[in-house]
């Protein structure tokens, strides 16, 4: 159906009217001077957006002499599941793989074996270069093989038996409990105290639950910005949190709004409770302290 045709007919049908807006421009083929062709086509994608595709195509004719039997077979019509499909390879069954360098050579096996060996030798050499250093006495052996492992702990940890008689030079902050016989929880590790302290702050930093309102019965099409605007009338809003579904991105129906000042929050609570927003009536109350 072409665009010009529909316009010529005076349509009264509202459905047809709508259609007319969506009619895609005709695909175009422009022949360029350098022998290439530019194909412009339009389509509507899944989101209902119009997509314009421009393809530049260069035709190269490769002439090949084949015997008449082969030529005749090329004209056969397709059958089976291919029945009725257009000529040419279909992208669902036929793809072109990546280029493979294939160069026959006389002593493939020996050279290949050397290459493989080289690779292996390289890895071995690398491993050799990596110095083994005992964490207890810095000697050239594994920590588990250290002659002092029963009497001394790895560097940076208090020894099990001898205490701190040999003071370690560098104390690594927040290091894992290395080499020790048992697991050390993070907050008990050396320098781990700092990690523990951060925990209480939480993701949003310190927040004053006293001036936070819980808003429920929120429309699922609500936006954080709308809420901020609505509650901003009563005072300075420090934080708006709107719970959203992870998959659909729609609001789950509740939100938290924090104010800088508790009196503003109280005012907002009083005014906004029962306020109609997006065909629903909001319910606003003070948030309960998180446990």
């Amino acid at each position: 159906m072409s665009a010009t045709l529909t316009k010529a007919k005076p349509t009264t049908d509202w459905a047809a009217d709508e259609d007319e807006d969506d009619v895609l421009p005709q695909p175009e083929v422009i022949k360029n001077k350098d022998g290439t062709e530019t194909h412009i086509s339009y389509r509507i994608n899944d989101d209902g957006k119009k997509i314009k595709t421009i393809r530049k195509i260069k035709h190269t004719v490769i002439r090949q002499e084949v015997n008449h039997r082969v030529a005749e077979r090329r004209t056969w019509s397709k059958f089976g599941v291919e029945n009725g499909r257009k000529v040419g390879p279909q992208s669902d069954t036929t793809t072109v793989g990546e280029n493979i360098e294939f160069k026959p050579r006389a002593n493939y096996k020996t050279t290949q074996a050397v290459e493989d060996k080289d690779l292996f030798a390289n890895q071995k050499a690398k491993l050799k270069e990596a110095k083994i250093k005992c964490r207890i006495c810095s000697g050239e052996h594994w920590t588990s093989k250290c002659p002092y492992k029963d009497t001394m702990a790895p560097e940076g940890e208090p020894g099990p038996g001898l205490g701190d008689s040999e003071e370690p030079e560098a104390t690594q902050a927040g290091s894992l409990g290395q080499g020790g016989s048992s697991y050390v929880p993070p907050h008990l590790r050396k320098g781990g105290a700092a990690t523990g302290e951060r925990m209480s702050g939480g993701k949003y930093g310190e927040r004053d639950d006293l001036a936070t309102l819980r808003v429920t019965n929120v429309s699922e099409f609500a936006e954080e910005a709308d809420l901020r605007e609505m509650f901003g009338r009563f005072g300075h809003v420090t934080r708006v949190f709107l719970a959203k579904d992870r998959d659909t991105g729609r609001a789950k129906g509740f939100a938290f709004v924090s104010f800088a000042d508790r009196s503003d929050a109280a005012k907002a609570c009083e005014k906004m409770d029962g306020f109609g927003y997006g065909h629903l009536i909001l319910r606003v109350e003070f948030a309960k302290k998180a446990t």
Partner: peptide, 18 residues
């Protein structure tokens, strides 16, 4: 269970035998 016939030159499937 399916037999396929292909043109070797371009990989186009000529048909299937069921």
């Amino acid at each position: 269970h399916i037999v396929c016939a292909w043109y070797s030159a371009n990989g186009e499937r000529l048909g299937t035998y069921h």
